[in-house]
Amino acid sequence: MSDYREIAWQGLWKNNPGLVQLLGLCPLLAVTATLTNAIGLGFATMLVLIGSNILVSLVRDYVPKEIRIPVFVMIIAALVTCVQLLINAYAYGLYLSLGIFLPLIVTNCVIIGRAEAFASRNNVAKAAFDGVMMGIGFTLVLMVLGACREILGQGTLFDGADLLLGDWAKGLTIHLWQVDTNFLLAMLPPGAFIAMGFLIAIKNVIDSKLAQRTMPANPEPAVTRARITKVS
């Protein structure tokens, strides 16, 4: 169980693909104008990540090292096509909203990176769990970024929820305040880049506070310990 706790900690916080590894920044900055888009892209990426980790782990002993990357890319591309067709069939509005960034999941460094660094070296159970944790970690970053941009940009939350969940979800939109014109800086990619910088800074501050708590209150200098040993 300690291995699985470490995998969860790595994916959700310590080695988060969005905040630490800084992978998949193109869709992360471009698509997260609303929370709905962020959830949709995060969910699609997570499905592909879990599926690719499982399949790569299953075939890892049968694929020659010389061609492993092309094989991994083919697996990822097949899964992305399946997810794209599902979203096109059941959430067409979201499909149009995500646009080119949906098929570009194939080139997302998070997926190919986990396939090469983890799934190709571990069993199916650990590979699947790693896909779940990395996917959740990436999705959470997308959701926080999308929520911040949507609130600052247009004063709402869950705008366009019907694109993801159907017509019944139109009532889920929360209007926090009325704005005459949208705050374009928050809605455009430069605003996402600035917001992402703040999120990374907040994570670094939290990590610094946690590190200070784990350090001894008054660590004894090494020179002092050496002198005490010599005198005694």
Rank of each mutant, 00 (worst) to 15 (best):
M1H: 13
S2Y: 11
Y4S: 15
E6T: 12
E6M: 10
I7C: 12
A8S: 12
Q10A: 12
W13P: 09
L19W: 04
L19D: 07
L19N: 06
G24F: 04
P27A: 11
P27G: 14
L29G: 12
A30T: 15
V31P: 08
A33T: 12
A33D: 12
T34N: 13
L35Y: 04
A38H: 10
I39Y: 06
I39H: 00
G40Y: 02
G40Q: 07
L41M: 07
A44C: 15
T45W: 00
T45Q: 11
T45L: 15
M46P: 03
L47T: 00
L47M: 14
V48Y: 00
G51M: 01
G51D: 02
V56W: 04
V56S: 13
D61W: 07
D61V: 03
Y62N: 15
V63R: 10
P64L: 15
I69H: 04
P70G: 13
F72D: 05
F72H: 12
F72T: 02
M74P: 03
I75E: 02
I75R: 00
I75S: 00
V80N: 01
V83C: 07
L85G: 01
I87M: 10
Y90F: 14
A91V: 02
Y92W: 08
Y95N: 12
L96Y: 03
L98I: 14
G99H: 05
G99A: 05
L102I: 06
L104V: 06
L104M: 14
V106D: 03
T107R: 03
V110N: 02
V110M: 06
I111C: 00
I112S: 04
G113C: 09
R114D: 00
E116W: 01
A117H: 08
A117E: 11
A117C: 04
F118P: 01
N123Y: 05
N123H: 15
A125W: 11
K126V: 01
A128P: 12
F129T: 06
G131A: 07
G131N: 09
G131L: 06
M133K: 03
G135D: 07
G135H: 08
T139Y: 04
L140W: 03
V144Y: 05
A147N: 05
C148S: 13
R149G: 10
I151Y: 02
L152N: 08
G153M: 08
Q154V: 09
G155R: 10
G155T: 09
L157C: 11
L157M: 15
L157P: 09
F158C: 11
D159C: 03
G166R: 05
G166D: 09
G171W: 01
I174N: 04
I174W: 10
W177A: 13
W177H: 15
W177R: 13
V179H: 07
N182A: 15
L184V: 15
L185W: 15
A186G: 05
M187K: 13
P189A: 05
P190H: 03
A192T: 09
A192M: 04
F193P: 02
I194R: 11
M196G: 14
M196K: 04
G197Q: 11
F198T: 08
I200D: 07
A201D: 11
N204V: 01
V205P: 02
V205K: 13
I206G: 06
D207N: 14
K209S: 09
R213P: 00
T214Q: 14
T214P: 00
M215N: 14
P219T: 08
E220W: 03
P221Y: 01
A222P: 04
V223A: 14
R225G: 13
I228Q: 13
V231N: 12
V231E: 15
S232N: 14
S232Y: 05
S232V: 10
S232W: 05
